[in-house]
């Protein structure tokens, strides 16, 4: 859990303006990592920033002992991370948190918003071992983003991918939730659903996840979501990263995104709880 991981690759991908990076780490993490889990990475020896960066795992290669992470520069911590050269050894806690469940048959519907696609890459990698049909619905800001965020990886695998962008520069000019509604309305999807052979996994901004959860609830599609929240310790001590869920007695309670999540039942989460 308290690991030393060696940086194999840490380089910008796609258009520099997107600020996207690919990080490959070599060490023990790959041995036990499951899709949906995250690593808590120390990016500096100084006290600024004080905290580690929680980054979700996008690829797991137990044979080579490597995990792959994609991240976007968002602040000082990820900016410092982007400057760490290959060969350096990092202090890493993990793999942490819960993972996605991987179906062994039927259709796995992946719904991603923006960089929420990255943890779903690891889901694809695991599901590929089974006779599962993988369908990807991915919404991004624009074509520039989707190209930069390794869209080609999905296309090369020959997966069925439907895209939407906010500005219409690629795929549908719409939200990813519109793609989801369209897909669920298909007769073939309905058939799978009635046979209990459809399962969905989603990751993206909270607003998108809330909408996805609503649509899946209406259509009775089992859904897992990967949540994101500001995190300090990553192991359940600080209670900083909680989400609100329905308790057994019908009331509300908190769960820690780092510990009981980040992957949770999409229908359990109370979105916009405002308490």
């Amino acid at each position: 859990m308290n690991l030393k991981e060696k940086v194999v690759i840490n380089e910008g991908i796609g258009h520099p303006a997107q600020g996207l990076y690919k990080l490959v780490l070599s060490g023990e993490a790959a041995k036990t990592a499951r899709p949906g889990q995250f690593l808590h990475i120390q990016v500096t020896d100084t006290s600024d920033p004080l905290l580690r960066r929680p980054l979700s795992i996008a690829g797991i290669d137990p044979e080579r002992g490597e995990v792959t992470i994609y991240y976007r520069i968002k602040g000082k911590g990820t900016e410092l991370l982007s400057r760490i050269p290959a060969g350096q050894v990092l202090s890493v806690l993990g793999p942490l948190g819960t993972g996605f469940s991987i179906p062994e048959k039927g259709e796995l519907l992946l719904i991603a918003g923006g960089i929420g696609m990255f943890p779903l890459f690891s889901v694809i990698q695991s599901a590929e071992k089974y006779p599962v049909k993988i369908k990807v619905l991915w919404g991004g800001e624009n074509k520039d983003f989707l190209d930069s965020a390794d869209l080609n990886l999905l296309l090369q695998k020959g997966l069925e991918v439907e895209l939407s962008t906010l500005d219409g520069s690629f795929g549908e000019k719409d939200l990813v939730t519109a793609l989801l509604e369209k897909h669920l309305a298909l007769g073939s999807t309905q058939e799978l659903l009635h046979g209990g052979l459809l399962q969905a996994a989603a990751c993206g901004p909270n607003g998108m996840l809330k909408a996805v959860a609503g649509i899946c609830l209406n259509s009775n599609v089992p859904l897992e979501v990967s949540l994101e929240e500001r995190m300090a310790c990553g192991v359940g001590a600080c209670l900083g990263c909680v989400c609100t869920v329905r308790a057994e007695n019908g009331g509300l309670k908190r769960k820690r995104v780092c510990k009981e999540g980040p992957v949770m039942n999409g229908q359990e989460v109370v979105w916009d709880a405002d308490i």
Partner: peptide, 23 residues
């Protein structure tokens, strides 16, 4: 106590702001 809503954390230079609210 459920404590306060999120965001409960904010990083500052060499510091951390929290408002967990005694969950």
């Amino acid at each position: 106590r459920l404590g306060n809503p999120v965001p409960r954390l904010a990083e500052t230079p060499s510091g951390l702001l929290n408002s967990v609210g005694l969950e």
